[in-house]
Design a binder for these strands. Structure first.
Lengths: 228, 228
DNA sequence: CTACTTTTGTAATCCATTTTACAGAATTTC
DNA sequence: GAAATTCTGTAAAATGGATTACAAAAGTAG
């Protein structure tokens, strides 16, 4: 965790790459879209034609196996780009993107993006960097899955979420997404039951507090100890 | 496994992107290097300055945790590019690249590559595509780790290796890399002991045959069944 | 060819996590 | 605001795989 805080989030708002005029010309290819909570933006198996920008709300990217088991690869916050980033690949998607809250998604045909990218090496570079980052993130997740137990993984997840989706309130810092235990379980790669147990043990030890599905940070030090 | 055989391997030989003249001018920035079996090309923590092309031999890319446990992310064959592909990122490496055989590596400063990429959107595109592919591959590995048991994972690994590193001999198809059980274990995310047991059960059931560390395919159908 | 090192086979024990199975709480819907 | 649904807490039983612990085999070096 070299790049703390919002480093990776803020750095990669790809739309920033475009100038004011370009943004105007982009309007024709960009289409805004409202997606209701729990609705999919795309599912595994869909053809892979668009790129998306999350303007408002929260979206999760998940892999779901035949039996319905789900693993959530990443939670996105506004400003982030998604939609299998390996450009110009016509194979169907292997992930699903699902809105966790009512969200506004802005979408663009891959081909159109490609046109812009040709004249804007900067754009390709940014995308490259972003993908490199995602690659690393996901490699870390594998390492966690293999070498850490559930309490450690959960502590790590919470710390990550406190960094990536923080919200300072009068009652302390909280993760600014309402997550069910099932969603959390999908993020750490454990069962809902196990997640419940560990989460409650964290509560009892005074590491966190949960109020109407918002998780508040109480004792970062101790959480970090468990994260190892 | 949509893209069978050598699809992803052959498609992405980045050096192909360059014309004959360019290759000549590239000679100044490309440096050949011989690496002995078991020697690292780079280790986690190293500054991240070069890109590499594997010309001859085999290289594995691994994550190794503090206690020395290793997980091998990918095995590379000649023609493949490696070295954290998120260009222009100066953070230190998180993976290690280690030669599995005596290998010839061709290396290039990131900055130099960058210079070429600016005038060659095609190059960035290819790299993008490659990274997208690696991203997917690694996401599949996560899914496997979470949802499949060791026999299934091992069967899948073998099938993958028979596709990616095949060698037809008079005694049948074999995986053309000598892998110890430990290496295999690192690839499936299991212990050496477990890997030994399962590998032997595969032998006993007549799915594979092992001769001086080369694994030969006998019964693909049955292997696929176990892979589920 | 012999000694040394690395790799392999196997099996008993242990343990973290899943599975199964409910009951109670909280939310959403009508 | 009652009924239906979806979430949460907990705990006993089952289990897949890690750990531990050696001995045997294979490979390598002197």
């Amino acid at each position: 965790m070299k790049h703390t805080k919002l480093w990776y989030l803020k750095k990669f708002n790809l739309l920033e790459t475009f100038s004011a005029e370009e943004m105007i010309s982009l309007k024709d290819v960009l289409i805004d879209n409202v997606v209701k909570k729990k609705q999919p933006i795309y599912l595994a198996g869909d053809p892979d034609e668009n790129l998306y920008f999350l303007k408002e709300g929260r979206v999760k990217i998940s892999r779901i196996d035949e039996s319905g088991k789900e693993f959530t690869i990443i939670l996105l916050e506004p400003g982030e780009i998604f939609g299998e980033l390996g450009l110009f690949d016509d194979s169907p998607r292997e992930t699903a993107a699902i809105a966790l809250e009512d969200s506004i998604i802005c979408m663009m045909k891959r081909r159109d993006f490609e046109k812009y990218a040709i004249n804007k090496p900067e754009l390709s570079f940014k995308l490259n960097k972003l993908m490199g980052l995602r690659l690393r993130q996901i490699e870390s997740r594998i390492e966690e899955l293999l070498f850490r137990d559930v309490p450690s993984r959960l502590a790590r997840l919470l710390l990550r979420l406190f960094e990536q989706h923080p919200r300072e309130t009068t009652n302390g810092t909280r993760i600014n997404i309402k997550l069910s235990q099932q969603e959390i379980a999908n993020l750490v790669g454990a069962t809902r039951e196990m997640t419940s147990m560990v989460l409650n043990s964290f509560k009892r030890s005074g590491l966190i507090r949960i109020e109407s599905k918002y998780i508040y940070l109480i004792d970062r030090k101790e959480l970090e100890k468990i994260a190892r």
